[in-house]
Design a protein around this nucleic acid. Sequence first.
DNA 1: TACATTGTTCGATGAACATCGACCATATCA
DNA 2: TGATATGGTCGATGTTCATCGAACAATGTA
Lengths: 106, 106
Amino acid sequence: MSARTRSLTHAHPTEVSLQDALDAVGDPVRRAILRELAGTPDWTRACGTFDLPVTKATRSHHFAVLRAAGLVEQRDEGARRLNRLRRPEFDRRFPGLLALVLAEPG
Amino acid sequence: MSARTRSLTHAHPTEVSLQDALDAVGDPVRRAILRELAGTPDWTRACGTFDLPVTKATRSHHFAVLRAAGLVEQRDEGARRLNRLRRPEFDRRFPGLLALVLAEPG
DNA sequence: TACATTGTTCGATGAACATCGACCATATCA
DNA sequence: TGATATGGTCGATGTTCATCGAACAATGTA
């Protein structure tokens, strides 16, 4: 594991409050990230490959929020940062919540 | 039905967006209202009987948000405004969401 | 009628947060 | 080595929204 990857602050869903989870999924850009992430296999999408109407600074902020909420796991692959949706863990902690997000139309 | 009751703007959960639902349950005061409401039978709690750390102006605002999100139904009984949690309707529209709120500690 | 209770509306205020541009760090490639 | 690509950090900005006090309306009660 690289030093960059090691420095990432992740939270496991079990240690996330309902408030933080709701705040995380309360933003439409973050929900778009989650839906796009759910449509492809784990560890295949870098942060920059998402189709989002915001600059990379904002994008980076949103990924940090998703990490802190236990929704996304990240790992560095060279210069790119790959993502994984923590679906089973998050589902166990907040049953039904992620399904609502993924079922939301576009 | 009184004129005051008639003038209340309710939304059925089916016509509520996920965004509005998440915004509604995203506030801790509103979640406290929902939990307190779930603990007593329908139409037995007036707005003023809830134990909340806000003034009545703020309280009134929160009830309006909950009405617009399809979470609470209201009816006037004299000078008091009684409430009902729209649990089955809301559950059908957003499965699992209300359960997360009601399961939240204190 | 006068008073108390219940709740809404209005305007103002303060805080939280999404957003941006600019700059920096690291990794890959020519 | 220099150039490009990917992504994070920082400070500033603007908007949204929860909150409040004050004024108002409607109901119930003495």
